[in-house]
């Protein structure tokens, strides 16, 4: 008697769908426009994905810990505006640590609400998305920020510098990815993040301080956001106060695309990096195909839906199921 669902095309797509889709995209793009696989273009895609990527690294911790972070986009606007403003007031050496402290204070606040007060992370961070946006506008008086003396500062090094021809944003993304990957996969803290996300009750019964672990994931996420804000500010040396708007969804798309489970307990930093690159290449490919930039918002949505569907499909072993 024939198998019902588990074998055949459906099952294969359920397990390997994202790679198949990516391969199809890449081949189609390369055929449609050879410039797509040009080395400069590839490098360009990675560089422009770095800011998103740095944020996605932090959100990976939050998601594996069983929560969501939708505040990263507006938090990134906040760090960018703050560091640009402080640069002219107290100089880059003091501006950068001050900005990190302020951003991480926001992360700590979210961590208290979600970790210790056990409020729903979707609601908390969605609310923070709006609240931090308001904070940024208040701070900047609704104006955009610019560094007055763009030539007389070393601040541009994070966004525009490079070592041995490799752009600084890529180096920072890579370094952070390696460090965070080691923390997640090799340290007791990383193990606890998986435990708390996999089964919070069982983690508590094993003596793991669940609230503190969740708190720490948000703190790490805000650290990554601050780093992304630094790169953003340094690259443009001036910014609108809505620079990170909408990025929370792209970040989430990259993380899910990489295979971190929205239910928590599964995912890796390496997979998130892959997710970031897939997202970057797809967006770039569509641009090269001549799609308007605005189409990317729709594309991001399609990717999220596809990734969530494949995530659940992989769990039940088929693209659809009668039961769940």
């Amino acid at each position: 008697m024939a198998e019902l669902t588990r074998k055949g095309l459906g099952g294969f797509l359920a397990r390997q769908g994202i790679l198949v889709a990516f391969a199809v995209f890449m081949i189609a793009f390369a055929v449609a426009n050879p410039r797509f696989i040009d080395i400069d273009n590839v490098f360009g895609v990675i560089r422009s994905s770095a800011i998103l990527g740095v944020m996605a690294l932090g959100v990976t911790f939050v998601v594996i810990g069983g929560n969501l972070d939708l505040s990263v986009g507006s938090m990134m606007s906040f760090s960018t505006i703050v560091v640009l403003d402080l640069h002219d007031k107290i100089g880059p050496t003091l501006a950068i640590p001050s900005m990190f402290l302020m951003t991480m204070a926001l992360g700590a606040f979210i961590g208290i609400l979600v970790g210790y007060l056990k409020l729903n992370s979707l609601i908390v961070t969605l609310g923070m998305l709006s609240a931090i946006h308001g904070l940024t506008l208040t701070y900047s008086g609704g104006k955009n920020m610019d560094i007055a003396d763009k030539e007389g500062t070393w601040f541009a090094v994070f966004g525009q510098g490079g070592i041995a021809g490799v752009p600084m944003p890529i180096l920072m993304f890579a370094a952070l990815a390696i460090i965070l990957s080691i923390i997640l996969s090799r340290t007791p803290f990383g193990r606890k993040v998986y435990a708390v996300g996999g089964n919070g009750v069982a983690a508590t019964f094993s003596g793991i301080p669940r609230a503190r672990v969740v708190f720490m994931t948000y703190l790490m996420s805000s650290f990554c956001v601050a780093t992304a804000g630094l790169i953003q500010a340094s690259r443009s040396m001036g910014s609108q106060n809505t620079v990170g708007q909408g990025m929370e969804l792209e970040v989430l798309a990259a993380v899910i695309l990489g295979g971190a489970s929205l239910l928590g307990g599964a995912g890796t930093i390496f997979k998130t990096v892959i997710g970031v690159l897939i997202l970057g290449f797809i967006q770039n490919g569509l641009l090269l195909l001549g799609l308007a930039f605005y189409a990317q918002y729709v594309v991001t949505w399609i990717i999220i839906i596809l990734a969530v569907w494949l995530d659940i499909a992989a769990k039940r072993g088929g693209l659809w199921s009668r039961i769940a």
Binding site: I182, R186, T187, P188, R191, K192, Y194, A195, G198, N199, V201, A202, A203, F205, S206, G207, I208, G265, A266
Partner: peptide, 29 residues
């Protein structure tokens, strides 16, 4: 299943979970 185990985790990691902080070499597990 609800309180004793993290079903998605492997056997070893489940077993060592309460003492994972003590099973270290330097900063690593």
């Amino acid at each position: 299943k609800g309180q004793g185990l993290i079903l998605g985790m492997n056997c070893r990691d489940n077993m060592t979970l309460p003492q994972v902080s003590d099973l270290t070499a330097g900063p690593f597990v």
